[in-house]
Design a binder for these strands. Sequence first.
DNA 1: CATATTTGACCAAG
DNA 2: CTTGGTCAAATATG
Length: 290
Amino acid sequence: MKEVAQVYELIKTHQPLLLLHHQPQQLAYSLLTQAMRALNVALSVMKHLPPASASASASAAVPVNMIKAEEAPANGSATPGHDASAADGGDNLHAVGKATRRSSAAKKRRINGEDKSSWFQLTTAVPHEDGYQWRKYGEKEIQGTHFARSYYRCTYRDDKGCQATKQIQQKDNNDPPNFQVTYSNDHTCNFFCTNRIINNSNSPDLHSLTVNPDDDAICNKMIKQEPQAAWLPPPPLATISTNLDETPALHVCQEMGQQLLETTMMEEALVLGVDLDDPYFNDPQLLFLY
DNA sequence: CATATTTGACCAAG
DNA sequence: CTTGGTCAAATATG
């Protein structure tokens, strides 16, 4: 449910941006990647659900690789962070022998303890494609398994302090092998702050798209304007012909204006200063939105 | 050059 | 002691 709700919110939030943005393809790519990731997770989980009964006492059908989500105890414990002491240049001698290496790394590992703030598992054939960017930091042979377990952390951990991690373990040798994926800690790297969007900072025409903190403000604004349903009910097609000279313009009734102006979309667009070369102008519906 | 992966060592917990 | 998670030097990749 969480993942599906995330997809819904994602699309609802970004649909206006997608239609209005200067580089809709880029935004669409990132939106779809996000949505596919969440749907992939949701489908994997549902695939392992017991058929229908949903009787909570049906303990026999405990899905092995199911959600095991638990919420953080709501303490501020979420950010163990780097202990301030750890950053000190504590290399006693320059000869950083293997003895002094990682002298005082404050490690915490409480798997069965209480401090794994949140995690869940799923089984999937495509463990790597989840829309996030991960960096591998370890691999380990696990007793009782035939395949090594791989350890990943969020690529943006150092940049954004994102503590999300992920473990991947192959479970079998089926044609598409199944992998058990364990996610720990939610991503704290913001969707727009991470450039999961294809981002070539050298390319000037992408400049308007990448990493724009204002995007969040725009999103929030739009959500607040339209709290309930998705943003746009598509305008009745019949009223929008490809001939913009004949398509009546939409007017907003303001308190003073009792009489509506009789204009066309073309006239209105020109009044608004629409660039005739703008791609929106080629699509009457987009122009309508514009 | 920067960034990512590999891999043995390190370390906490049981 | 064993085990699993993490670190970081060495290595690979672009």
